[in-house]
């Protein structure tokens, strides 16, 4: 696959802005003065060693974690303690987790319909149609009436992507969506993500799938010890890393 054209216009407006964001867990500082701007339609891949703060950073963006200092703006909303309706922001931000987190007591179709029905008050028929069309998009319409435990990992993750898309989010966050999958299932999930990227979705993906980063990302962000060490386009990031820590990380990850 060739490098796709950048989605975002050069002067597209920023849709996510992190400014000097700090995050502490007790005394431990997980994020240190993080600055990150993502424009509408941009596709960002985040990588870095375990414990470097990748999950923490994207979880701050939909406020599953609350940052302690700095400012986060998402789709025009500033995330503060006073924020009245965090749920309104979350509706605009879809999230896909490493271990899928499908609701085990609901069938696939009900997993997809739950949030639109409750949060957007969508009618049953409309919600079902939307859910079915998204299941077709992730290529598993035939699994609609099964329960999550009856699906393979790759199928479950595709359902989880479809579930997030049901809310028509403007932004999608992925936290290592393929790390829990058997190798033979990784590509089916990456294909769905690539489709999504080509449709112009704003995406932040934490992943170590470097092939995906090369072919899909507009920018690659490298984190280490709670800091963003380097941000560059894939071409430069892989061929011409600027920092020693980036070089070390790349040599480790490309070694296998």
């Amino acid at each position: 696959m060739s490098n796709s054209e950048p989605n975002s216009e050069p002067n597209a407006e920023p849709i996510i802005v992190l400014k000097d964001v700090d995050k502490f867990f007790g005394d431990f500082q997980a994020l240190k003065k993080i600055n990150l701007t993502v424009k509408k339609g941009e596709r960002i891949v985040v990588c870095g060693p375990s414990g470097s703060g990748k999950s923490t950073m994207i979880r701050c963006i939909n406020r599953l974690e609350q940052h302690n200092a700095g400012q986060i703006t998402v789709a025009g909303h500033v995330l503060t303690d006073q924020i009245k309706d965090i749920d309104a922001v979350r509706r605009e931000v879809g999230m896909v987790f490493q271990n899928f987190n499908l609701f085990p007591h609901l069938s696939v179709i009900d997993n997809l319909m739950l949030a639109p029905r409750l949060v957007r008050n969508t009618g049953k028929i409309e919600a079902r149609e939307k859910a079915m069309s998204l299941l077709e998009r992730v290529r598993i319409p035939e699994q609609a009436d099964k329960y999550p435990s009856q699906l393979s990992g790759g199928q479950q993750q595709r359902v989880a992507i479809a579930r997030a898309l049901c809310m028509n989010p403007e932004i999608m966050l992925f936290d290592e969506p393929t790390s829990a999958l058997d190798p033979e299932m990784i590509s089916e999930v990456l294909e769905v993500m690539t489709d999504l990227a080509q449709d112009g979705m704003t995406m932040i993906c934490v992943t170590h799938e470097m092939g995906f980063a090369r072919s899909v990302a507009d920018e690659v962000v490298f984190m280490d010890e709670g800091e963003i060490v380097e941000r560059n386009n894939p071409e430069n990031f892989f061929n011409n890393p600027q920092h020693q820590r980036t070089k070390l990380f790349l040599s480790q990850i490309l070694a296998h």
């Binding site: 599953l64 749920d87 987790f97 987190n101 739950l114 809310m167």
Partner: peptide, 25 residues
């Protein structure tokens, strides 16, 4: 906890999460 986070990420209110995720499980 991950299931409740998934519910939160979808924009479900605390009440909805309690009724539709926590309770049945």
């Amino acid at each position: 906890r991950g299931l409740l986070e998934a519910g939160a990420a979808l924009g479900l209110s605390k009440r909805h999460r309690f009724i539709h995720i926590t309770t049945p499980i």
